[in-house]
Deep mutational scan, measured.
Amino acid sequence: LVRYRTISKIPQITLNFVDLKGDPFLASPTSDREIIAPKIKERTHNVTEKVTQVLSLGADVLPEYKLQAPRIHRWTILHYSPFKAVWDWLILLLVIYTAVFTPYSAAFLLKETEEGPPATECGYACQPLAVVDLIVDIMFIVDILINFRTTYVNANEEVVSHPGRIAVHYFKGWFLIDMVAAIPFDLLIFGSGSEELIGLLKTARLLRLVRVARKLDRYSEYGAAVLFLLMCTFALIAHWLACIWYAIGNMEQPHMDSRIGWLHNLGDQIGKPYNSSGLGGPSIKDKYVTALYFTFSSLTSVGFGNVSPNTNSEKIFSICVMLIGSLMYASIFGNVSAIIQRLYSGTARYHTQMLRVREFIRFHQIPNPLRQRLEEYFQHAWSYTNGIDMNAVLKGFPECLQADICLHLNRSLLQHCKPFRGATKGCLRALAMKFKTTHAPPGDTLVHAGDLLTALYFISRGSIEILRGDVVVAILGKNDIFGEPLNLYARPGKSNGDVRALTYCDLHKIHR
């Protein structure tokens, strides 16, 4: 019993810090008490220290592992850092350059016999395009090294910054494609005289377009951006097909006994025919423009016929181009109408809503002055909100995010209106959640004399007048207030005048 009563005193000691020596009952000389009392004092002292730490809000209350900052290894790049964003855009520009100039170089340097010394005699450094290609190869190699040090988000939505895990993730992902696209074939085969082989191998750079397509997928929600990307894709495919079309004609031209190829026909049409040795002929500019003209006309199913396939190889390629053109029509131009419709969806919704308003007016036989006010209010409210119901949009977000959005939407009023000066951010967040926005066209009466005042109004834009009878008592403008002081009276009061809008007004109100 003594032991039980001794232990039962522990909660009292913990909360009230009572010393055991003052209790005459606990001072009985028993061996059990002498053993338990020192333990009680020690526990009391420890609990006292913990309570003191909690009340003082000291940093040592938290466990040590929670006080440590997340460790980022040296030379690790955050995937959302500004440097990584700028670097990704730079790589994107280099990939676009590669997609345009690599097929052009591979096709127009394929057994090209233009006048001038061969590239091997001039030297590697004197070729501007080769120098640019070398810079692109170096940048792609540097990009691989950067990807080995860039964080990523795993399946659990955690940012991984450990170098080993980053390397394994990159090896399992895009490393092989990036490595093949970054191989400097110019340096590996330079001086061997195989410019045709170098041009063909350099087309491996186009593998990076797969990554670019995935990154550009984030802009699919913007109709104008999608339309622009589709047109660029169409032009890029036409450019690639033009390079292939020229390569076919250029390879067949020296081996044909009869002059029936499209390059021969082009030379005869523009007065620059090929001679018996295969030299001469149109310039590279004429060849490229004509090839691009043929691919565009074939892809769009126009086909004027002034550039036509004559050999079997050219006919087979033309059939493939027609098939590609039909697929592009289905996948690209078939979506253009939907994209344009999405661009004008706001206008369509406006006309639909206006039609419903006019049908309501016609069905209920609203008189002319009231009908005009109804239409003007709808037009003004639509121009202010673009038909978007803010309350319906915010309803799907958590309250903390709703408060931040409301604070942002009402920031101008909260910053410049005098009653809100000096208020804490928590108070402003709470008030912003209570605001209701209303609009009024010129001549609209917001409050009639004798109406119950259940709200306090803040003028965000425009001006109003307060009338008693036919006498203008006051004219209020931006950041002015009218209405009933909230919670100042037990019952809502009545208006002693009319409140009429002089201009288009936007008002925020808080109800009782």
Score class of each variant (00 low, 15 high):
W262L: 01
L409W: 03
A291H: 01
H351K: 06
Y293L: 05
T290E: 01
I72H: 14
R342S: 06
F140W: 03
S277I: 04
K66W: 08
Y170F: 01
L92E: 03
I198G: 09
N391T: 06
H239I: 01
F234H: 01
P309E: 01
S192C: 11
N306I: 01
P398Q: 01
M179L: 13
Y384D: 11
A204V: 07
F234W: 08
K395G: 11
M322I: 03
L413H: 01
A432Y: 03
W245H: 01
S220Q: 13
K202V: 01
P184E: 01
F234I: 01
A125N: 04
H169K: 09
F397C: 05
E157C: 14
I166R: 01
R358M: 04
W382G: 02
L394D: 01
V212H: 07
A125G: 08
G223Y: 05
V357G: 01
E64K: 12
A204E: 01
V136S: 04
I324R: 01
F83N: 05
D404C: 02
G123P: 05
A392L: 08
L206R: 01
G193I: 10
T120S: 12
L197P: 04
V131K: 01
M251Q: 03
H162V: 11
L90M: 10
I141M: 05
T347H: 15
Q379D: 15
L292C: 01
A204P: 05
L370T: 01
C406Q: 10
P273Q: 01
I270M: 01
G443W: 01
Q353V: 03
H264Y: 12
T120P: 15
H416G: 11
P70T: 08
F190W: 13
F333Q: 05
A238I: 04
L431V: 06
G267M: 01
D88A: 01
G123K: 07
A430N: 12
S337F: 01
I177M: 04
L409T: 08
V136F: 05
R371H: 04
G278F: 01
P128S: 05
E157A: 14
T311Q: 01
T385D: 07
L90Q: 01
L263F: 01
L67K: 03
K111D: 11
F228N: 01
L90R: 01
